[in-house]
């Protein structure tokens, strides 16, 4: 599967956006709320990003990547539509959803550049088996690299 294949609503916004990479679960609730608040404060477009990755399969099986990608894409798309509805209900006018497949860090950086993101709202991930992208030191390095790209970071603990 090529890195960064996209399924998105709408094209590239005219002005800088609030980008919120998110999984969509209850632990993302504060991150989502903060991104909605910022979008309302700045009257900026809000983009929810869901990245599909199946690295965790390496712990059990390597033969079902395609079917797992399909299932997680469907789940991600489902979660994004719920988040978009929530943001619209709260008054955000321009809400978009981007769903991509690939390495989480590369995809977030890529989408942030493409969307000309002014601000990236990101929560601190919880470690579970198979989550290798966001071990604490690596997460900090990742945030530093985004700051170096000139992206304002809004971290949500």
């Amino acid at each position: 599967m090529p890195d960064g294949s996209e399924k998105a609503e709408g094209g590239r916004p005219d002005k800088g956006v609030i980008l919120c990479p998110v999984r969509g679960g209850h632990q993302s609730a504060r991150t989502v709320d903060r991104s909605i608040e910022l979008a309302l404060e700045r009257s900026a477009p809000l983009v929810f990003l869901y990245v599909v990755d199946v690295d965790f399969l390496g712990l059990a099986t390597v033969a079902r990547v395609k079917i797992m990608m399909d299932e997680l894409s469907e789940t991600g798309s489902f979660a994004l539509s719920i988040l978009a509805d929530k943001a619209r209900d709260r008054g955000v006018e321009d809400v978009r959803c981007v769903l991509r497949e690939g390495n989480i860090q590369s995809v977030i950086r890529q989408v942030a550049r493409e969307m000309n993101a002014d601000c990236l709202v990101i929560g601190r991930p919880v470690y579970t088996p198979g989550t290798v992208h966001f071990a604490t030191p690596e997460f900090e390095r990742f945030l530093e690299s985004l700051r170096a790209d000139g992206i304002q970071l809004e971290g949500v603990e």
């Binding site: 999984r23 969509g24 209850h26 965790f56 712990l59 059990a60 919880v126 198979g130």
Partner: peptide
């Protein structure tokens, strides 16, 4: 335990990707 069976690890991986980590 989470590492007791491969099915547990796979379920935890899927749940984590959906934003509901199983620690």
């Amino acid at each position: 335990s989470l590492i007791g069976a491969s099915a547990n690890l796979v379920t935890a991986g899927i749940a984590e990707r959906a934003g509901h980590p199983i620690t």
